[in-house]
């Protein structure tokens, strides 16, 4: 399994960073909690992507499966169990 050499591709990282910050802000600011949760999942996936871009394939995989997958499901369950609206 050969990965690309010169793992630090800063242009790619920069783009992902920007999207990360964007999704984080959206997740915090949006009023519909379900959208917030979805944005949170997007955030996790972007993060996993970033980890893999940085060469941390194990961490990226874990983040994708656990952080995005399982946490996403649980987040959705919580939103369904409680309320979907947020005041801020």
């Amino acid at each position: 399994m050969i990965f690309a050499v010169e793992l630090v591709i800063w242009q790619l990282e920069l783009v992902i960073y920007l999207f990360l910050a964007l999704s984080a802000i959206v997740a915090l600011e949006v009023r519909d909690l379900l959208v917030a949760v979805v944005m949170m999942t997007v955030f996790s996936f972007l993060m996993a992507l970033l980890f893999i871009a940085m060469g941390a394939i194990d961490v990226g995989f874990t983040e994708a499966v656990i952080g995005a997958g399982v946490t996403g499901i649980l987040f959705v369950v919580v939103v369904y169990q409680t309320s979907r609206k947020s005041k801020d």
């Binding site: 399994m1 394939i57 194990d58 990226g60 995989f61 499966v65 656990i66 399982v70 499901i73």
Partner: peptide, 22 residues
């Protein structure tokens, strides 16, 4: 040999079960 291990695998197993549950 490749990325993975107990946690990731366990989470995938759980995901497959949760899928049916959801």
């Amino acid at each position: 040999y490749s990325p993975g291990g107990g946690f990731q695998g366990g989470a995938l197993l759980a995901a497959s079960l949760l899928l049916i549950r959801v």
